[in-house]
């Protein structure tokens, strides 16, 4: 088992005929992901290295059996593209695009919720289930199949921690990048729930950062709903208030959203929080082998 993507994934990539869409879509296929279709309006009937292109996502669901959609559409057109995916009949939408206006995402979030579609991202690196499927831009070479589920707001930080776990001889059930935007389709809590139910996952590594209160909410949730051990890392202790640190959502507002507050909230519920990515990986390995 793994979560969100796996051997059952049938992927459709919006923007497959574009530069980024084709690069990453074909890279995902080379990893073993079942890439069944691409979508570019007006280019239906063409193909990209043997992958059929359709005019709409809905058509790719009907004709090619797509169940997972990946969105690589530029920011100002991305929210309508995600909405199209939500209404197309796929179960899962993974939005990689960075820079979508937050109020557009607010509307899109509720559309996904009402339709019962799982939305990951936007502004995320995607989801990788090592050995099974990769949907997004996560470099798969740093991750082996294994027992640790990772959920993270950040891409490169996840690669850093994943690589340290690999060097320590441990692998991952799945790696989920939930994204660094203020409004994202799935939060820590949603992914923790999936890992709790996944028999392959024995330990969860959660990587958070400044801004919002998703980590604090996750701390409460872990205490009441999660039986598996969780190890966390929080980035942004040195971030000044009022400054956006790269990610649109990484900002301390007044006195709220600080790294210290998040660390305190997690530790108060018994979650161990690493001081650095290296220490976090070390703790995860220690807890996994001790339990």
């Amino acid at each position: 088992m793994s979560i969100i993507v796996g051997s059952e994934t049938k992927l459709v990539v919006s923007g497959l005929t574009g530069r980024e869409g084709s690069f990453h879509g074909l890279r995902n296929r080379a990893y073993g992901t079942d890439l069944v279709a691409g979508v570019t309006p007006g280019k239906g009937g063409q193909d990209v290295e043997g992958v059929p292109v359709f005019d709409s996502i809905e058509e790719s669901v009907r004709e090619a059996g797509a169940n997972t959609s990946m969105i690589f559409v530029p920011a100002r057109f991305a929210a309508p593209a995600i909405d199209e995916a939500i209404e197309s009949g796929v179960d899962t939408v993974i939005a990689i695009t960075e820079g979508i206006p937050v109020l557009d995402m607010l509307k899109t979030y509720w559309k996904a919720k009402e339709a019962g579609v799982r939305l990951i991202g936007p502004n995320c690196p995607g989801v990788l289930s090592p050995g099974k499927a990769n949907v997004g831009i996560i470099p798969a070479q740093f991750f082996d199949p294994g027992k640790i589920g990772v959920v993270s707001k950040s891409g490169t930080l996840t690669y850093q921690i994943g690589n340290e776990l690999k060097q320590a001889g441990e692998g991952n059930s799945s790696i989920v990048g939930i994204g660094g935007d203020p409004i994202i389709g799935s939060d820590f809590i949603d992914i923790l729930t999936l890992y709790e139910a996944d028999p392959e996952t024995e330990l969860i590594v959660m990587v958070g950062e400044i801004g919002g209160d998703a980590e604090e909410r996750a701390a409460e949730f872990i205490a009441s709903e999660i039986s598996k051990p969780v190890v966390a890392y929080i980035a942004g202790f040195t971030a000044p208030p009022g400054k956006q640190m790269g990610h649109a959502g990484a900002i301390i507002s007044g006195s709220s959203g600080t790294a210290q507050a998040k660390k305190d909230a997690l530790e108060a519920k018994g979650v161990r929080v690493g001081e650095s990515p290296t220490e976090t990986a070390k703790i995860a390995v220690e807890v996994l082998r001790g339990s």
Partner: peptide, 28 residues
């Protein structure tokens, strides 16, 4: 490279007793 790794780098430098002059994410 990457916002998360960059924030983490600032933190690690501060833990080592240094004072970061900036945050700069060179991007993917």
């Amino acid at each position: 490279n990457g916002a998360g790794l960059c924030m983490s780098t600032l933190d690690v430098v501060a833990q080592a007793g240094g004072k970061p002059a900036n945050f700069l994410d060179a991007g993917g």
